[in-house]
Amino acid sequence: MVDRLFAGVLLLVAIGYTYIAFTAIKAPFQYDPLGPESWPQLLGIAAILCAGYLVAKPDVARFGLALPTWARLAVLVVLLFGYAYLFQPAGFILATFAFCTLLSVMLGSRILPALAFGASTGVVGFFLCTRILELNLPAGVFAAYL
């Protein structure tokens, strides 16, 4: 069923993609026999055929995950979006500290080791990357001190 659902969503996307390819994409003038629209048209039709086949003949019935697993995955995705949200304004050190600590606690670590792990990943990671490897990372709230 999930297979059919996923393929159904992709089928809608593929139909939209193909519709745009046939209606919206047009070059104002061109010399070549194939314009910018032909390739997406071919791809769109191939995608519709594949997705249509999968809607008709799905082979994975269900995800087979228990409810706690779903909850864990939901928390993970929230954490990741939170990490992405905080990354620039709060800076690498703080955002990484929060992300690592929370995720490792969720994965079963005790609080103190998790705090130590989060803090060391944030601080060591920042200096390792910016000072030694010369990669660009946001300093965020510590910008004035670093």
């Binding site: 990490y83 992300f99 690592c100 995720l103 990943t121």
Partner: peptide
């Protein structure tokens, strides 16, 4: 321990894309 390894993947991915 896995609980420390797993977050590292997320951190590495973020460092990579952002840098």
């Amino acid at each position: 321990p896995q609980q420390f390894l797993t977050p590292m993947i997320g951190v590495l991915a973020f460092i990579g894309v952002y840098s």
